[in-house]
Amino acid sequence: MVAPGDGKKLREGVAMVEYELHLLHNYLIVGALLFGIGTIGFLARRNMIVMFLCVEMMLQGVSLSLVAWGRYHGNWGGQVLVIFILAVAACEAGIALAMFLMLYRRSGNLDMIFWQSLREENQSETVDVEIPEPDEADHQWPILTPAGIEPDHDTEKPLHRSHV
């Protein structure tokens, strides 16, 4: 039985359904974009920290998708899973950073290129063919206020610590 006010409500109901659907769709696209960008970053970068950063970005994209599904289905499943993902990501970050410190200790920097001993016997080592020079813009020291005293920029003194 259709009541006179039902038409608007029905249209509203249909509109709500479509709204939810499109919301879900959009969130999934955003999640996919985050995931994809994270993948590109992970595959391209050499700094261990930045690599891990991209992994976290991938996780974030997944979290967005999960929450979107949870909202769509109207239950807690998505959010609960994301909470656990969060917890696990935190553990993983801790251990990963501990390992990065160990690796830094052994190689003196955070470059992934030093850790290729799993390669096959007759493969040659991947080495840097050319090391790009830093841009002028990258070596900009921060501009301090007149009150601050700029410290010495002695380029001969080694800047990195020998140990952590």
Partner: peptide, 11 residues
């Protein structure tokens, strides 16, 4: 701790 100068060649 590991990269006090902020960036390095491998970045």
């Amino acid at each position: 701790l590991a990269q006090p100068e902020g960036q390095s060649h491998y970045d």
